[in-house]
């Protein structure tokens, strides 16, 4: 340690999940946002944001409440139409498409096959009055699966992968703990083998120990499945554990980007330094 200063540099950079080998050769980003701005009247949601998301890569968007990170997430996931800017996505057939020029039917199909969206509050992403098995199976049925036994077996398999006992398959998420609900939401999203998953504060509102378990699970799934993930979080520890790259937002603008360990260990922007020194105290 050369410089102590007010910024902590004690973290070692070595054990983030590496990008899977096959994906480094991919020449094009999966999703590209260019000059994306969203104004709520005269108020800025996010302004002139350009980011690329590459296959198999986890990108963390960090910043405090009101920094525009959730607005950005919604804009690039077609949940919120940006005021200006374009968002393109490379489809499975290799074609790059402008998401906001797609028909709604096609966009919905994309969202429930090739994408996932994990909400902070599982109740927003689950059907609370439908069994866990049907929650996981819904995307399969929506894309044409018509064999009950197969759907149920796949759902059971996914419950296992997110560490929910298979005998809970017919229970409703209302009967689940917060951590279980969040894991169920993840299974529900991953069952169709998406390539890109958006996550909005996926560990928010969970106890620390539950958080840790969820993060480990996510980390493993992301690596095993080669998922690209955009994760919005205000928790830098979550960003460090999960992400390869980081985007720091403040007042709707991106103020710093880079490798996650570089941004956290050698923050350049004044605000990032403040963020790092404020949060990484543990």
């Amino acid at each position: 340690m050369t410089v102590a200063g007010s910024v902590s540099h004690i973290e070692e950079p070595v054990d983030r999940p590496a990008i899977p080998a096959a994906d480094a050769t991919e020449e094009k980003p999966l999703l590209s946002a260019s000059g994306v701005s969203k104004f709520y009247g005269s108020r800025i949601g996010c302004e002139d944001v350009s980011i690329d998301i590459w296959p198999g890569e986890v990108l963390a968007v960090v910043g405090e409440s009101g920094s525009g990170k959730t607005t950005l997430l919604n804009c690039i996931s077609t949940r919120l139409m940006p005021t200006t800017g374009t968002v393109t996505y490379r489809m499975r057939d290799g074609q790059t498409r402008d998401l906001y020029r797609m028909g709604e039917a096609e966009r919905r199909f994309l969202m429930r096959t090739d994408w996932g969206f994990v909400h902070q509050n599982p109740a927003d992403g689950l059907r609370m009055t439908v069994s866990a098995g049907a929650n996981v199976g819904e995307r399969l049925m929506a894309t044409g699966a018509r064999h009950y036994g197969d759907i149920r077996a796949t759902a059971g398999d996914w419950l296992g992968r997110v560490e929910i006992a298979e005998d809970r398959i017919d229970d409703q998420p209302r009967a689940f703990s917060g951590g279980m609900r969040q894991r169920l939401q993840i299974a529900r999203n991953l069952v169709t083998g998406p390539r890109l998953v958006f996550m909005d504060e996926p560990t928010g509102g969970l106890d620390v120990s539950v958080q840790a378990r969820l993060l480990d699970l996510l980390r493993g799934l992301v690596t095993d499945l080669g998922l690209a993930v955009v994760v919005v979080t205000h928790d830098l520890a979550v960003a460090r554990l999960l992400s390869h790259r980081m985007v720091v937002m403040k007042d709707g603008r991106v103020i710093e980007t880079g490798l996650t360990d570089r941004v956290l260990d050698d923050p350049r922007a004044p605000y990032t330094q403040l963020l790092v020194s404020s949060i990484l105290q543990a």
Binding site: E11, A18, I19, A24, D216, R245, L259
Partner: peptide, 24 residues
């Protein structure tokens, strides 16, 4: 950043002073 990641994967290895333990 992506090039750095590729370099870490293929070209430069690193043994740090401390292990950042990953739970589980």
């Amino acid at each position: 950043p992506r090039q750095v990641m590729a370099v870490r994967r293929d070209t430069i290895g690193y043994v740090s002073q401390f292990l950042r333990a990953v739970p589980r």
